[in-house]
């Protein structure tokens, strides 16, 4: 048995696949590829396949890591080829490597957010609004969490979770490059940040795209 980290681009119609569905979908892909998965040895054996950082529904990604444990002598290159042949539309295998970092080492993620406004005037105005909201450092969002069994709404301060924020605009488009906290303990979904910006700034884009570009460790180096 050995562990392999598969890097997958997720794009197009595939972005509407939820995390749970993705798990099932990829288990089947690995089966179709003829790669023998290692099964857990518990009471209800299941194949070992996990995503270190689930991608929210509706977002695309340059490279999502997927960790699998396999029982085969196949090389990384052979696995790459076998998987590439069986991927559903919207998924592209970018790399197959030994997992270098532990899943828990993910601390941040870099996103590219594209907003389309009604026209160039709106875009310029909105860009200024967003900039002042971020610079103000007072941006908050409401997040539903759980306290025991109770559902609670808590207010979170976004500025503590935004580590880098660059903004540019051209025509009716605004592009934001942001590094946000990510991981199993502290995580900021860029869609939540965007909602908070829209609400606080009183604007509504006609169209939005969010793409995860890479995962980072706490020292801003790439998660590999």
């Amino acid at each position: 048995m050995r562990s392999v980290r598969v890097w997958l681009e997720k794009d197009g119609r595939a972005i509407y696949t939820s995390h749970l569905d993705l798990n099932r979908c990829m288990t089947r892909a690995v089966r179709r590829a003829g790669i023998p998965l290692w099964y857990t040895e518990g009471f209800n054996p299941h194949p070992y396949l996990m995503f270190p950082l689930p991608l929210p529904l509706g977002q695309s990604s340059d490279g999502e890591p997927m960790d699998i444990r396999i029982e085969t002598d196949m090389t990384d290159g052979e696995i790459f080829d076998a998987l590439s042949r069986v991927m559903p539309e919207g998924f592209t295998v970018k790399a197959v490597r030994e997992p270098w970092d532990k899943a828990g080492d993910v601390a941040m993620a870099q996103y590219l957010i594209t907003l389309e406004l009604a026209d160039a005037v709106q875009a310029e105005r909105t860009a200024a609004v967003i900039r002042s909201l971020i610079d103000g450092g007072e941006l908050t969002a409401e997040k539903t969490g759980k306290k025991g069994r109770m559902k609670v709404v808590k207010e979170i301060k976004l500025s503590e979770l935004i580590h880098r924020f660059e903004l540019s605009w051209e025509g009716s488009f605004i592009k934001i490059s942001a590094v946000l906290s990510a991981g199993s303990t502290v995580n900021l979904n860029p869609a939540l940040m965007l909602d908070a910006l829209c609400k606080a700034g009183g604007f509504e884009p006609v169209y939005t795209e969010i793409r995860r570009q890479k995962l980072l460790k706490s020292d801003f180096s790439d998660f590999e």
Binding site: Y16, D21, E89, G90, E116, Y207
Partner: peptide, 25 residues
């Protein structure tokens, strides 16, 4: 491919995967 209009709608409904197509096979 999905139009921008449809993409906007898809994020407002439950289980958008019902309406996208693009499944294997």
């Amino acid at each position: 491919m999905l139009s921008k209009e449809l993409k906007n709608i898809l994020l407002k409904v439950q289980k958008p995967g019902r309406y996208t197509g693009g499944e294997l096979n």
